[in-house]
């Protein structure tokens, strides 16, 4: 008996590993099929690598001001030229990837769990809970996200941390809405009824069985929102409400260059390009993630 279960265990581990492999292989095939998704993920992976190895890639110190080298056009010495204080724009864009990624990830980490919890609670319990939570989110949804973020950032005071909080506050209601809609769709499914009839508690049903079903659409929505988050962060930086000089933040850099847009185009344009490419990368990836996470895609 004992040896039997022993063998079982090893076999079981093997089987579990195989099942996982199969899952990843399918995911890979689905990923490969979607060419735009491949482009998107490549961009995002490159961005991650750049952010991680910023000090190695940067040719200059991003904060070093050499006033004699102001507003130099792109050359081999300065790939992207220099700005009005003689800082190397390439190095600043590379370091800016860190700032941008940090903002985007922190906003995601704050706003999605909040939205998810509120949305699932509202959808699962319905009635008064639903009314209260959704009216609350309606208040936030009544204003454009950027305006809301500006208002909060202004109230909290300038700074990267406050910008992150402001953007997160402006963002959670859309995730709450989405999670609520998904919960309503999933709640009456037979597999939820089964688990109820087995005596599972509400908390267990929400955490273990409903949330996983909401996650995929939230992740998709989030990756599509990443662009907006980055743009909002840049917008706040541009207005002086986000990252403060001399932090190499992309929005701030675009803002700095606006005086020289006609004669020294590179000062604003090249950081702007960085924003464009990253936003595009996230959007392309978001569309593809939906297909990969959809279990029905795997049937065929």
């Amino acid at each position: 008996m004992n040896t039997e279960t022993q063998i079982d265990k090893r076999l079981a581990r093997n089987q579990r590993w195989k099942a996982r492999q199969r899952y990843f292989k399918d995911s890979y095939t689905l990923w490969r099929r979607n060419h735009l998704m491949v482009v998107g993920t490549t961009i995002i992976i490159l961005l991650l690598l750049i952010a991680l190895s910023a000090p190695l890639l940067a040719t200059h110190n991003p904060l070093d001001q050499i006033l004699s080298d102001r507003l130099l056009p792109p050359t081999w010495e300065h790939f992207f030229g220099t700005d009005s204080l003689g800082r190397d724009i390439f190095s600043r864009v590379v370091h800016g990837a860190r700032v941008t990624l940090t903002i985007a990830l922190l906003v995601a980490l704050i706003s999605t769990p909040v939205g998810l919890i509120i949305g699932v609670l509202a959808g699962y319990f319905g009635g008064a809970v639903d009314e209260i939570l959704m009216r609350l989110s309606d208040v936030f949804l009544a204003f454009p996200k950027l305006i809301l973020a500006i208002a909060f950032a202004a109230a909290l005071g300038p700074g990267v941390e406050n910008a992150i909080i402001a953007i997160a506050v402006a963002n959670w209601p859309s995730y709450a809405r989405l999670a609520r809609a998904e919960t309503l769709a999933v709640r009456d499914n037979d597999y939820i009824q089964v688990i109820r009839s087995m005596g599972a508690s509400n908390l267990r049903i929400m955490v273990g069985h409903i949330t996983p079903m909401c996650l995929s659409s939230i992740i998709v929505r989030l990756s599509l929102d990443m662009g907006t988050i980055i743009l909002t962060a840049a917008g706040l930086g541009f207005l002086g409400l986000g990252a403060q000089p001399p932090t190499p933040e992309w929005g701030l850099m675009v803002s700095d260059g606006r005086l020289y847009l006609v004669d020294q185009w590179w000062v604003s344009t090249l950081p702007g390009f960085a924003i464009l490419i990253v936003v595009m990368g996230f959007n392309l990836m978001g569309d593809g993630i939906r297909d990969i996470l959809d279990p029905h895609q795997r049937q065929s």
Binding site: D190, Y191, G199
Partner: peptide
Amino acid sequence: AHERARQVQLIFQDPYSSLHPR
């Protein structure tokens, strides 16, 4: 309710919606 669940179990009609897809 827990105790009842151990005594009475229900099998659903639709084999596609009665298993959690994830």
